[in-house]
Computed example of a mutant assay.
Amino acid sequence: MAKTNPRTVARAKRVRRIRKKITGTSERPRLRVFKSNKHIYAQIIDDVAGRTLAAMSTIDKEFAVGEDASKTGAAKAVGMKIAERAKAAGIEDVIFDRGGYIYHGRVKSLSEGAREGGLKF
């Protein structure tokens, strides 16, 4: 029997608690963040229709890290790129879903990049 990591279980509980309170609509979709040790992912999701409207990550083919090669710099670049894709899809307002992570470091950097890119939340 495999042991479960207590951090993973605690994060899953936080995600469920957050998702009870926020849902994305077609007028104001949800900007969801997931991070692994190496990469960061962002999706804009319409929960009513059950569709992903835009997505971006550090493993995307269009992603190119600029001068700042750190993980937080890459997260900010992903935030700016997801904002660009959202604007192309006609989305300006989103609800930020931090995915159970604390609003610090790469998550904060991604949200700041999205705000600089023109998203409002």
Rank of each mutant, 00 (worst) to 15 (best):
V65W: 02
D97R: 05
A89H: 06
A2N: 09
S70Q: 11
M80W: 01
D46I: 06
N37S: 13
M80V: 14
F96I: 10
A10D: 07
D93L: 03
M80F: 03
F96S: 01
R7V: 04
P6S: 13
T23Y: 04
G73P: 05
D47R: 05
S26V: 01
R14S: 06
E92I: 00
E92T: 14
D46Q: 09
N5C: 15
V94P: 01
L31H: 07
Y41D: 09
G105P: 02
M1Q: 10
R32V: 12
R14Y: 04
G118C: 02
L110S: 11
E112H: 11
Y101K: 11
K20H: 11
V9M: 07
I91S: 08
F96L: 11
D60N: 14
G118H: 00
D46R: 06
K108P: 03
P6K: 15
K108H: 15
A83T: 02
G79K: 08
V107T: 14
F63L: 12
V78T: 10
K108W: 10
T8E: 13
E27W: 00
K71I: 08
A114W: 04
K87E: 10
E92A: 15
N5L: 09
G118I: 00
G66N: 13
A88V: 02
A2E: 12
A74H: 00
R106S: 14
Q43D: 11
A74T: 01
I22Y: 00
R14I: 03
A64V: 13
R11E: 03
A88F: 01
I95P: 01
I18N: 04
S70G: 10
D68M: 13
D47H: 06
H104F: 13
T23S: 15
A10L: 06
F63K: 11
R11T: 02
K120H: 10
I22H: 00
K120S: 13
K3V: 09
Q43W: 05
S57R: 03
G24N: 05
A77Q: 14
T52V: 09
K120L: 04
G73R: 09
S109Y: 03
K87Y: 02
M1F: 12
R106C: 08
K71C: 02
L110N: 10
G50C: 07
R51C: 03
K81I: 10
G105W: 06
I22T: 11
E92K: 13
R32I: 14
E92N: 11
P29Y: 03
A114N: 08
E84K: 10
T4M: 14
A64N: 15
D93N: 15
A114T: 07
V48P: 01
H39T: 09
